[in-house]
């Protein structure tokens, strides 16, 4: 009889401890989840703030005032020997491939028409 009672008490104890452990783990998981959510929310808030700041600083007016603050600027000096127009055939010849900034093409436009005196 005593052995049975001890066995019952032990089984009940182990079951209780297991249940308590599971419950504690569940609470811990929920707590971790809440902490993670709170961290994510805090990061989101920071992200929103930075996003707003970027928004403010990239307004056309704001960019302009920054450019003005940088002082007078000069056009890029161009190496005229490198001037040429790109065509589709050019882009298919990899050995000659080079990148010419759009400003170069713009410069070319003001040159005289073919056959005219420069």
């Amino acid at each position: 009889m005593r052995a049975k009672l001890i066995a019952i008490v032990l089984v009940l104890t182990v079951t209780s401890v297991t249940l308590l452990t599971v419950r504690q783990q569940r609470v811990q998981a929920v707590s971790d989840m809440a902490t993670a959510i709170e961290r994510a929310a805090a990061l989101d808030r920071q992200l929103w703030r930075i996003r707003m700041e970027i928004g403010r600083r990239t307004m056309p007016d704001a960019l302009d005032s920054r450019l003005i603050a940088m002082g007078p600027m000069e056009p890029m000096r161009l190496d005229r020997s490198r001037l040429r127009w790109f065509t589709l055939e050019d882009s298919l010849a990899p050995e000659e491939e080079e990148i010419i900034p759009p400003v170069v093409l713009h410069e070319e436009r003001v040159l005289p028409e073919p056959g005219g005196a420069e």
């Binding site: 989101d44 808030r45 929103w48 703030r49 996003r51 928004g55 990239t58």
Partner: peptide
């Protein structure tokens, strides 16, 4: 309550014109 954020308004090139922050 967990407030969510109102969507942003951006221009056609994605520049932010109205947004929500905390």
């Amino acid at each position: 309550p967990e407030p969510a954020r109102r969507g942003d308004l951006v221009d056609r090139r994605g520049r932010l014109v109205a947004g929500t922050r905390v």
